[in-house]
């Protein structure tokens, strides 16, 4: 079953066209990596999938579990089980992490027809996830991301992912700005969340994250299109030869005709 199907996706920011016909099909339970140089459209793709207003889709469609994703509000996408781990998690002073997570979790549960968790059930759920991911529970009493180091912010993203139990995770450059220890911690967090029920799309500039989160498929995004797809070896080839060689030798994929 397809979790995500992107067909001929075109998008722009202000007047600048960034995505120029992205095609991608992701089966349930798979881990896909999307790699690409700066300016290739990686973050635009992640933000379009999450529903950020400033990106305008000019053509194409995105199906999530068979539903038209682009018609959904950002919060409804999240409630339907889509989770984007932000490249730059936002600091929100004054909003307590625990309160925030509870509001988010109960919004997701309500959408699924489940009753709200009470304070005790919530704390049990959250503490269990914190334990699995080796997250310091004192983080819960702090304001969302406020004063967190880069590594703590990324860990907090993975922690939220664990708490909300999404079916599709989009990880937008989760490795950027992390030193190798922080990278290992974050990657092992993601690995504990891998499951046949959960689909993961890892967006990254560098191959090194993929040493720790081993993908089933690798795609190369360049000039707003996916110019090559392959297995995990493709990441190693990129590491060795650089994006330039692949860009030079690849024919753009033809856009599917309707």
């Amino acid at each position: 079953m397809k979790t995500l199907e992107i067909k001929n996706l075109h998008a722009r920011v202000e007047e600048k066209s960034i995505l120029n016909g992205v095609n991608l099909s992701v089966q349930k339970g798979e881990v896909h990596a999307i790699m690409g140089p700066n300016g290739s459209g990686k973050s635009t793709l992640a933000n379009v999938l999450a529903g950020r207003d400033s990106y305008e889709v000019t053509d194409g469609e995105v199906l999530y579990e068979g539903k038209n994703l682009l018609e959904m509000e950002t919060e409804d996408r999240a409630r339907e089980g889509l989770f984007m781990a932000f490249q730059y998690p936002v600091e929100i002073p004054g909003v307590n992490n625990s309160y925030f997570l509870k509001a988010a979790l109960n919004a997701v549960r309500k959408h699924r027809g489940l009753p709200d968790l009470d304070a005790i059930e919530f704390m049990q759920h959250v503490k269990q996830k914190a334990k699995i991911l080796s997250v310091d529970p004192t983080l819960l009493s702090r304001s969302v991301n406020e004063g967190f180091s880069g590594g703590e912010k990324k860990r907090n993203e993975i922690f939220q992912m664990a708490v909300l139990e999404p079916r599709l995770c989009i990880m937008d450059e989760t490795d950027s700005g992390l030193d190798i220890d922080a990278l290992k911690i974050v990657a092992s967090g993601v690995n504990t969340l891998r499951s046949p029920e959960r689909t993961i799309v890892v967006i990254t500039h560098y191959q090194r994250l993929l040493n720790y989160i081993v993908p089933d498929f690798v795609h190369v995004l360049s000039g707003g299109r996916i110019i090559r797809s392959g297995g995990k070896e493709l990441a190693l080839e990129l590491e060795e030869k650089g994006y330039g060689s692949i860009e030079a030798h690849s024919e753009p994929q033809p856009a599917p005709t309707a």
Partner: peptide, 27 residues
């Protein structure tokens, strides 16, 4: 940015707005 972040976690627009206004005052 903060509004989008909260919504991206499933919190509705109105509730997210309220949460942010509240946080500002709660300080």
């Amino acid at each position: 940015e903060a509004l989008f972040y909260l919504r991206a976690r499933g919190i509705g627009r109105d509730e997210a707005r309220q949460l942010l206004i509240h946080a500002f005052a709660e300080d």
